[in-house]
Design a protein around this nucleic acid. Structure first.
Lengths: 173, 173
DNA sequence: GGTAGATATTTTAAGCTTGAAACAATTTCG
DNA sequence: CGAAATTGTTTCAAGCTTAAAATATCTACC
């Protein structure tokens, strides 16, 4: 460590710029969150394919529509799923080809298209959703209801923290 | 609640088959984990592109290589990143085109290729990693070190639970 | 030694995903 | 009213991702 510099020579401002704080535990947490999420997602993806020959994005999109029987605009689906607009266009296109959703022009805004589940889509989703809930229950099975509550709480704080930080540098966006 | 059935009429076996337990809180937890992860991932992806014009998968792959100066086989990268083999083939191909990684045949196994960072790749990654750590520190900034410890612990339990459940039905796999 | 099975990688086809550009329609406001 | 800004969607090119099939090599064991 021949190049170590006594930090006493740096004021707080300089230190903030040149000798960054240690983020090891935050990095470790981020990695662990990612690993957990990826494992669960992979498992659910695999079961959806195996059991129903359906992809996860399609299932997620149908889940959004199932919550809103009157249908949603493409933009609203995009916001709720946190994916790009163009992505939703394509997903809806393929779901419509399979007869699972239907599109209808908005009465009040000629730019806008509403999407909703067909009867076939609704019943297909109902069957998948029931099994899906069981899988999730299984996968989290070793957690006590107390663990779950704690995770829910700390993840809420995490979400708030991220929202707060993400919006800081939004000038150029 | 006209269709409610007294559960006293069903034995445990029947109940397990016909009236599944309630998984509401597990589903809520899963959704919240997913939302958190997606938000953070999107923010990091955006910053990597904006600041370094690099994609998240490339950054992740370089991070794996940076941890192992001697290089890794494609299969080992695939396992550590939890993505398919073919995916890694393509990523490495593109990183090699940009001069950030290099491939070298294994001495002992002619099937196997080792990949490692070039000097250029290593220094490019060092610069990105430093900023990346700062971003993660920022995004999780509102969490106390106690919150972080609690999350680390509960996510470990979650991971163990998922691993345990995923391996149960592996007969046909 | 030879063969059966396992392992490492690549290829392929299909689908997912993004960011940016292009359009169209609506809203705002001078 | 009409220009300017905003909003909703699509298109596009590039890249990511997967599962499955194909290839090549290695290992185990008879």
């Amino acid at each position: 460590m021949a190049d170590m510099v006594p930090s006493i020579t740096l004021d707080a401002e300089t230190r903030a710029l040149e000798s960054p704080r240690d983020h090891t535990s935050e990095l470790r947490l981020w990695l662990r969150m990612l690993t957990c999420t990826n494992m669960i997602e992979a498992e659910i993806r695999r079961r959806l394919r195996e059991r129903f020959d359906v992809t996860l994005p399609r299932f997620d999109l149908m889940a959004q529509l199932d919550k809103t029987p009157d249908g949603l605009s493409l933009g609203e689906i995009s916001r709720r799923m946190m994916v790009s607009n163009g992505n939703v266009t394509g997903l809806v296109e393929r779901l419509a080809e399979d007869g699972l959703v239907e599109r209808r022009a908005s009465d009040t805004d000629r730019r806008s298209t509403f999407v909703r589940l067909t009867d076939e889509g609704r019943s297909a989703f109902a069957e998948m959703a029931a099994e899906h809930a069981g899988w999730v229950g299984e996968l989290f099975g070793a957690l006590s209801s107390n663990d779950i509550d704690i995770l829910l709480d700390r993840l809420s704080r995490t979400k708030a923290s991220v929202e707060n930080q993400s919006s800081k540098g939004e000038g150029s966006r």
